[in-house]
Design a binder for these strands. Structure first.
Lengths: 136, 136
DNA sequence: TCTTGAAGCTCTAGTCGCTAGAGGTCCTAT
DNA sequence: ATAGGACCTCTAGCGACTAGAGCTTCAAGA
């Protein structure tokens, strides 16, 4: 049986976050001590690792909840693959978007050929979308 | 003089968001009508465009507030370039991180060679960080 | 067995950047 | 004069935590 602190050290998930996950209906302790402290078993540890790993991969708690249900029910994992696939697509879209921003930012931080007393090109460019090359 | 709705249409920023920016100390209307409605001038419009553009570039309101102060004070824009540069670095780091996730997700959504009744490889992999190839 | 102090408990509120809704007032065109 | 769209303020909610107050419990050493 693990205390919440042991679970925290074992997974790298902070104690208040574990309690938060419990409130969010993702992870309940197997039992409580007489004094009302949480005690987890191996299953709890693994479940928390599952959650933590999903979060590292950028999945929402919503998506993780869904995956946990599928995992609890076992069998058909079509939905699980759908979730992973959808998340992969979102990730790709976010990468593409960030890359456009990167280009823009790189350009912006170069633009500053103003002489003494003249306004800064960077600040001017920030106010004027028309100076941008692409979409963002 | 523009009403808040006109400003909204001109910039694409929603009305409640403009009010939120005001609460956040980024943008105040030049004046109010007798009936307490906000009225903005050209300066207000440009300031909002500045904010909106900064947000599109993913800058925090904090960073934008800072840039606005620099712009208001004019002259030395070293700090402005620092902000832009730091944000560019953050953006690059986020891209790199997302790309590692992309690889992992792509791999994950392929892994599912389980026979009928056997547990799904995807769900197992989600619980076990050790199966990952890289860092994330 | 007692004591101490780290670790646990619950509850509330704050973070960021909005968004939605309630319930009321104002402005403007007909 | 009136209708109704646009405006006002205020409060609460989102997601995923984080921080703090004020209290209780547990475990190890004396």
């Amino acid at each position: 049986m693990f205390s919440i602190g042991e679970l925290s050290r074992a997974t790298g998930v902070k104690v208040p976050t574990i309690r938060y996950y419990e409130g969010a209906g993702l992870l309940a302790p197997e039992e409580r001590t007489e004094g009302n402290q949480r005690r987890y078993g191996r299953a709890g540890l693994e479940r928390l690792q599952f959650i933590a790993h999903g979060r590292e991969l950028g999945l929402s708690l919503e998506a993780i909840r869904h995956l946990l249900e599928l995992s609890d029910r076992g069998r058909d994992c079509t939905d699980a693959h759908l979730i992973a696939r959808r998340h992969l697509e979102e990730t790709r879209a976010r990468i593409a978007r960030l890359q456009r921003l990167e280009t823009e930012l790189a350009r912006l931080s170069e633009v500053c050929d103003h002489g003494p007393g003249e306004p800064c090109g960077l600040i001017a460019a920030l106010g004027d979308h028309g100076q941008c090359l692409g979409e963002h």
